Amino acid sequence: MTPRQYVLVGLMGLPLGCATVPGDVRLRSDGTPMAEKCPEKALEVMRYLRLYVGESAWVQLDANQSRAESITLHDGPLESILDQDVGTLEAPLRLYGRVWTGGAQPVIRYYEAQFLKGKDRVPICAVARLGFGQLRKRPESKPGTAILNAPRAGMYIVDEFR
């Protein structure tokens, strides 16, 4: 067995359920989410997967709009595609999370990763970020949406959502 296979076999024995629903958080007056703790199970899984806080990789923000010139995100669930390996996560794989579009730029939090070939989803904690204001919404974005100039962003591993 390869080291990656040992990690995946070890994950099979972990109970992956959470006491609360990830992404079900209170909102600020501008519609952005408040702080949220990373579930203990996600922290445990991330240790097994060698996903350390601050590690990052490129993602296609919306699997349905990958490689488009500009994209429109809507409040609610999001499926992204990991473009680069990070820790023991090998690209491409699916990232599942949630988008909030209430502020000047969307807030994107990832709660699960899914390996290819039908493997189970595993809990993680990550966010999408892009420096220099590049993740800002375009002015023509309607309420509940965020029109972005780029389909990609950095995905960063976190231990808490702030």
Results as ranks from 00 to 15, higher is better:
residue 1 M to P: 15
residue 4 R to N: 03
residue 7 V to D: 04
residue 7 V to Y: 02
residue 8 L to P: 06
residue 8 L to V: 06
residue 9 V to D: 15
residue 9 V to I: 11
residue 12 M to I: 06
residue 12 M to T: 04
residue 17 G to R: 08
residue 19 A to S: 14
residue 21 V to M: 10
residue 21 V to N: 06
residue 24 D to S: 12
residue 27 L to M: 09
residue 28 R to P: 00
residue 30 D to Y: 08
residue 32 T to N: 03
residue 32 T to P: 04
residue 33 P to R: 04
residue 33 P to V: 09
residue 33 P to E: 08
residue 34 M to R: 14
residue 35 A to T: 05
residue 35 A to P: 04
residue 36 E to K: 03
residue 36 E to P: 09
residue 38 C to T: 05
residue 38 C to D: 08
residue 39 P to D: 09
residue 43 L to H: 08
residue 46 M to V: 01
residue 46 M to G: 00
residue 47 R to F: 03
residue 53 V to C: 07
residue 56 S to A: 08
residue 56 S to R: 14
residue 61 L to I: 13
residue 63 A to G: 02
residue 64 N to G: 02
residue 65 Q to D: 00
residue 66 S to Q: 09
residue 66 S to F: 00
residue 69 E to H: 06
residue 70 S to K: 07
residue 73 L to W: 03
residue 73 L to F: 04
residue 73 L to G: 06
residue 74 H to V: 01
residue 75 D to E: 13
residue 77 P to Q: 04
residue 79 E to W: 03
residue 79 E to H: 11
residue 82 L to C: 08
residue 85 D to R: 10
residue 87 G to K: 05
residue 90 E to A: 13
residue 90 E to M: 13
residue 91 A to H: 10
residue 92 P to E: 14
residue 93 L to D: 11
residue 94 R to W: 07
residue 94 R to Y: 10
residue 96 Y to G: 12
residue 101 T to Y: 06
residue 103 G to T: 05
residue 104 A to S: 14
residue 106 P to H: 02
residue 107 V to F: 03
residue 109 R to W: 04
residue 114 Q to C: 01
residue 115 F to V: 02
residue 116 L to T: 14
residue 117 K to N: 15
residue 117 K to S: 15
residue 117 K to W: 11
residue 119 K to P: 00
residue 119 K to I: 04
residue 121 R to C: 10
residue 122 V to G: 01
residue 123 P to I: 05
residue 125 C to T: 09
residue 127 V to D: 08
residue 128 A to P: 12
residue 129 R to T: 14
residue 131 G to S: 11
residue 132 F to K: 12
residue 133 G to I: 04
residue 135 L to H: 07
residue 136 R to F: 11
residue 136 R to L: 13
residue 136 R to W: 04
residue 137 K to Y: 07
residue 137 K to T: 07
residue 138 R to E: 15
residue 139 P to A: 15
residue 139 P to G: 14
residue 139 P to E: 15
residue 142 K to R: 10
residue 145 T to K: 04
residue 145 T to W: 01
residue 146 A to T: 01
residue 146 A to S: 11
residue 151 P to R: 00
residue 152 R to Y: 02
residue 159 D to V: 01
residue 161 F to Q: 05
